[in-house]
Design a protein around this nucleic acid. Sequence first.
DNA 1: TCAAAAGTGTTCTCCCTACACCCATGG
DNA 2: CCATGGGTGTAGGGAGAACACTTTTGA
Lengths: 231, 231
Amino acid sequence: MTNENQYCYRYPHPAVTTDCVIFGFDGERLQVLLIERGIEPFKGKWAFPGGFIKMDESAEEGALRELHEETGLDNAYIEQFHTFSDPNRDPRERVITIAYLALVRLQEVKAGDDAAAARWFPIDEIPSLAFDHDYILRIALQRLREQLHFHPIGFELLPEKFTMKELQTLYESILGVSFDRRNFSKKMMHLELLIELDETVWPTRKREAKLFKFNSNKYAELKQRSFRIEF
Amino acid sequence: MTNENQYCYRYPHPAVTTDCVIFGFDGERLQVLLIERGIEPFKGKWAFPGGFIKMDESAEEGALRELHEETGLDNAYIEQFHTFSDPNRDPRERVITIAYLALVRLQEVKAGDDAAAARWFPIDEIPSLAFDHDYILRIALQRLREQLHFHPIGFELLPEKFTMKELQTLYESILGVSFDRRNFSKKMMHLELLIELDETVWPTRKREAKLFKFNSNKYAELKQRSFRIEF
DNA sequence: TCAAAAGTGTTCTCCCTACACCCATGG
DNA sequence: CCATGGGTGTAGGGAGAACACTTTTGA
C-alpha cells in the first residue's frame, strides 16, 4: 500500500490509451469487433479493444499490440484517425485516447481466443457503448468513408480472391448507397486496380462468377500522381 | 525541493501537449507561424506554438488557447490532424503531442504581441525545426492539401472580399500546381460557392478586378450531400 | 418454364480541358 | 502604342449515369 503511487511528476499528467475500432466484412455487411467490459465503470457494456500505452512504445505500436491480442493478426491495415481528449470522458481519471481504425479479413481472425468476451456486431446493430465510444465509432465511420473515396482500402477487408459482386456489396455497405451493377464494374475495371483471374467460383447455386484480385503494383503507381476513386 | 513531484500515479503517464501549425496567406505564398525557442532543448531553433494541456481542458480548447496567445484570434478554423507519440520525440521526458492545424487571416493577426519571438515563414523557406516538427509540418501540409479537395477551407485564409486571382493563387500555392485562369474561374463559379460583389478593386495599376465573397449558406447546403471540389 | 444471378454494350449528358481574343489602363 | 493584367467563349473528348438483353442453372 505504501508504494502504490510511484510515478510522480511536477505537473499533472493525463493517462493515455489507444483504442482500436476494428472493422471486418462478412460478405454482406460491415462488422465491428467489440469487447464486453468485465469491470466497472460500464461493466457489462461493450467497448472497443484498447489499453494504456506503454512508455517505450508509440501509439501505433500500442494499437498494433491491441489488435494482435484480440485477433491474432499482426499485419493488418491500421490508421490513426482521431484523439479524444474530453476531460470527463472517463469517470475514474483523466484519460486521453488515441484512436485507430483497423481493417481486417474476417477469415484470418482467430475466433475468440483468450476467453475474451469479444464479438462481431454488424454495423447497424451496434449496442450502446461504454465511455464515449458511440461518438468514437461515428468518427471512425466518417473517416472510413472519406478514405474509401481516395484509397482502395476496401481491399483490406476482402479475401485475396473475390467476385465483383462482393466488392460492390462492400462499397455499398460502407458508404450506405447502392450502385448500378454494370457501371460499378466498368468503373472498377477502368481503374485497372483489379486483376481478372482465370478461376471462377459458385457464389450462389445459380451461376458461376469470375474471381478478381487486387493489383497492388498498379496502386503503388497510381498513388504517386494523386488519383481519386470516384463514387 | 521536497514537494516538487506532487502528482503521482500508479502507472507511468506521458506528458501531453498540443502543437499548432498555423497557416496564413499573404496573397502570394502560404506562410507558417513559428516561435523561436528561448530555452533548451533546441534553444534558438524554431518550433510551432504549443504547450502542455491543462487537466480541465480538451485538446481543442488547449489548441485554441495557444492560438489565441500567439495571434490574438479566437474564432479561427482549427482542425486536429494527428497525434505524435514516438517515445523519443522529446529528449527530456516522454511527451505526446496532439497536433492541430489552424488557418488564419494574416490581416487579422496582431503583430508579435507579447515580445514573443514569433515570425511568419513562407512555406518554401522554413528552417530546420526543433523536435520532430519538420515531420509534423510535412504531415500538416499533407492534410491541408487533402482537405482542400473536399472542403472550401481555403476561404479561411482569405479576407472577406477577394479577387478570383487571389483565390487561384491560394490554391496554387497550397497544392503546388498551376491552373488555367479561365478554367479555374469557371469551375469556381460553377460550384456556386462564390458571391460576386458589385465592388471592384485595383489589385494592380493596370485594370480593376471584381471582388467576391464566400457563400457559406451554399456551403452548408452542399456539405449535406457529400460534394467534392475537383482539382 | 420461371426466377435469380451474372455477363456485357449503347446512348446521352455534362464536366473538364485546351486554347484565343478583346478590353482597359499606365507607362 | 504597347505591355500587362483582367474578362470571357468555344470545340472536343472522356467519364459517369441511365438503361435492356442474354445466358445459365436450380427449383
